[in-house]
Design a protein around this nucleic acid. Structure first.
Lengths: 228, 228
DNA sequence: GAGAATGCGGAAGGAAATCTTCCGCTTACT
DNA sequence: AGTAAGCGGAAGATTTCCTTCCGCATTCTC
């Protein structure tokens, strides 16, 4: 899963356990960056990885290098998913829908690339990530063009609009909260209906309308959205 | 502007300058809570109000009481706006649109009531705010019902869906950033199109489609979204 | 399987950010 | 003019997070 970008450096290869720990650290960091932003305490990341802080610092001497590593891994995965969506789906519209519904990786990419100034500052200086990001946007652009050419996506939006919409829809509060996930799902479908070309009928929403009484009253969890 | 909820307490009235400062503190807190979340340093709030920290602490002995005061003021204003929108607009649909486009007050209400667990923890214990919130939701509910009765709003959404959509759309990153404001505006219009009842034509989006090249590359500002 | 090298955990010290108090001076009320 | 209320902001206390360090454990090599 975790891509190895250090394959061609002259450094000696990591010992097996070290390599395993490194992957677990990146995994934990990805998960925590997604849910709590790129400023979670290092100790929390270490705990999430089942590892001591010392180990974390040995592998990533500071937060920046961790963020860089996470960004590379994440953008690579997101790009792969996007390309798969572009190629494997029958229509441009389906590719778009699959993208929008796709995994947490996309959510993290959006965070890193559009929502967190701190992370973006770091990531934008990394050429590897930049190349991945450019490819990602190119893929998005072509999916949008395809969907518009086939007449399923409204013509007056650009790939930039779509990216902005991704950013809004993916900034969920609590990714594990079932209630709010259901609401987010419905909001996404409404947004998709808004994106349809005129005349294209919507499939409607599944389930029952949500009454005010069901607005999810946030459960408290240890860490606030930081500012959110 | 700042509503006085202490009118009937037995305490002696504030001196004129104190009262002025109190209002400025609440104003600054509202503005900062909106842009940076309810955990901004007290000192920053004081500075924003043109006041020393001591003054802030004399009036609000801790963050909780400040948040409570802000929430009361804010929900009262939002409710007033919502009721105005419900009454003054010709159709339920127009009321809804006006609400969605309405001021920063609504944005802050969403933050306090749906996006920030920390704030919600505090606010939910305050009866005054709860009553305001209930009225607000009741108003939303009736606007939704009106819009559906007149056939402009799709029938398969409830007021809870609308509230959730508000929450998504209003969680903007940088409220003062012109580029992202433009994108948010367009996203909002797309969402509104998604909310239309079948057969109701959209007006289309103003301006040109946004290309990928125009995705706003976040500018760094002193305080990250915290979480976000 | 033994020796050497690499890696590990997590306590502890340090740094930074934020909270909160306190008191000499100022301003508003009567 | 007298008095009570209010003010600012430096300074000390506190909390939170960062980073280092070293005795012990694991892996690799031959």
């Amino acid at each position: 899963m975790t891509t190895d970008f250090s394959a061609s450096t002259g450094e000696p290869p990591l010992r097996a356990d070290a390599r395993r720990n490194r992957d677990q650290i990146i995994g934990a960091a990805k998960s925590l960056f997604t849910s709590a932003g790129p400023e979670v305490p290092m100790e929390e990341i270490a705990r999430g990885a089942g590892v001591g802080v010392g180990t974390l610092y040995r592998r990533f001497p500071d937060r920046e290098s961790l963020i860089r590593a996470v960004a590379r891994d994440n953008f690579a995965n997101t790009l792969a998913e996007a390309e798969a969506a572009a190629v494997e789906e029958a229509t441009g519209w389906d590719s778009l829908v699959r993208l929008l519904k796709s995994s947490d990786e996309l959510q993290l990419s959006v965070h890193l690339g559009m929502s967190s100034p701190r992370a973006w500052d770091i990531v934008k200086g990394d050429e590897v990530t930049q190349r991945l990001r450019d490819s990602l946007l190119a893929t998005l652009d072509s999916v949008v063009a395809t969907a518009q050419a086939e007449g399923s996506l409204r013509a007056d939006v650009g790939a930039g609009d779509i990216a902005a919409i991704f950013a809004m829809l993916l900034r969920r509060p609590a990714p594990d909260d079932l209630d709010s996930h259901r609401l987010a799902e419905r909001a996404l479908l409404v947004m998709l209906d808004g994106l349809r070309a005129p005349g294209r009928p919507s499939a409607g929403l599944p389930g029952e309308p949500i009454p005010v009484s069901e607005i999810p009253l946030l459960k408290r969890d240890k860490r606030a959205a930081r500012d959110g």
